[in-house]
């Protein structure tokens, strides 16, 4: 590739340059290239677009996020880039697998009533409704299901698919995996229940049967452990996608991998209220402690409401 032949600096250095973090002696050669070198200018544009998009998608973390907000957003012109990215990323999705010509631009924008709303706004509104109703249902149920023995039995009889195991991790007790668990409260005075913790393996082409995750009524959270093929990153993030609507329903906070015997897994807890009977995909991404993440793999499962 031509750009690599010309030894264009790596992405992390370009990000530091774009965030004004480089000392002058390092920044000046990049300044010159940014104006006079075609390939460098093009690459810099790409990295800047990705950086801004990552900020808009709330994917920046740590020092990068801090620097972005403290320096990058200090310029009106750069804030305009962020505003532009927000508008661009709010454009409605379209079928990218089609070879048909694009529709005229006005038809691409969803219209609702008097005004026009980006698709994500409608999704966000739906999520608020789902979360609110889910909370009310769970609150109404109280903690009746915290120690419901039926859930243990249901988990035990759930057929084991080739890529789903409900075995407990070595450092955990069996009851942790197979019994609804009363977790340490996240907030003072609040008690949450977790249905179980299922081990999921990355989706492969040969995966014919989806692993099932039973969700006990009244459970606040559903546990899953995503097995890693390689533990390459200090930080992981998980997104829950509904393939039926192709929407991201939820994103995790930064997570760390832990050891279970010889394997490394990323434990994650999903809000049970978001799950209805059906298929879902957990998308695992990893990255440096304070940088952007990259996609690692899909972990597909079938939610079964008990």
């Amino acid at each position: 590739m031509q750009m690599q032949e010309k030894n264009i600096p790596d992405e992390q250095l370009l990000i530091r340059y774009l965030l004004g973090s480089l000392p002058d002696h390092q920044a000046e050669p990049l300044d010159a290239s940014s104006v006079s070198d075609e390939d460098f200018a093009a690459r810099l544009s790409v990295v800047e677009h990705d950086l801004v998009d990552a900020y808009v998608r709330d994917e920046l973390r740590g020092d990068t996020l801090e620097r972005f907000e403290a320096w990058y957003l200090s310029s009106p012109a750069r804030r305009q880039k962020v505003a532009f990215a927000r508008a661009l990323l709010a454009l409605p999705r379209r079928d990218t697998t089609s070879d048909q010509p694009a529709l005229p631009p006005p038809a691409r924008f969803a219209t609702s009533g008097k005004g026009r709303f980006p698709a994500w706004a409608l999704v966000a509104a739906s999520l608020v409704i789902i979360l609110t109703s889910g909370y009310l249902v769970v609150a109404g149920l109280g903690l009746r299901h915290e120690t419901n023995p039926g859930v243990t039995e249901q988990v035990a009889v759930e057929p084991q698919s080739p890529v789903a195991q409900t075995e407990p991790p070595p450092q955990q007790t069996a009851s942790t995996d197979t019994t609804p668990q009363v977790l340490p409260p996240d907030l003072p005075g609040e008690t949450q229940t977790i249905a179980m913790s299922v081990l999921l393996l990355p989706q492969t082409r040969g995966s014919a049967t989806l692993p099932a995750i039973p969700i006990a009524a009244g459970a606040d959270q559903v546990g899953a452990r995503l097995q890693l093929e390689f533990d390459d990153f200090p930080r992981y993030e998980v997104a829950l996608r509904d393939p039926a609507t192709d929407r991201i329903l939820w994103r995790s906070e930064p997570l760390r991998a832990i050891s279970e015997g010889e394997r490394r897994v990323v434990p994650v807890r999903l809000p049970a209220a978001l799950l209805e009977p059906g298929n879902y995909s957990l998308e695992l991404a990893g990255g440096p402690a304070d940088g952007t993440t990259e996609f690692i793999g899909n972990y597909v499962f079938r939610a079964v409401i008990e």
């Binding site: 998608r57 990323l89 454009l91 999705r93 379209r94 990218t96 691409r108 991201i248 998308e283």
Partner: peptide
């Protein structure tokens, strides 16, 4: 329009 479709994978 196609280029900015979707996230991650």
């Amino acid at each position: 329009l196609d280029y900015y479709q979707g996230e991650r994978r």
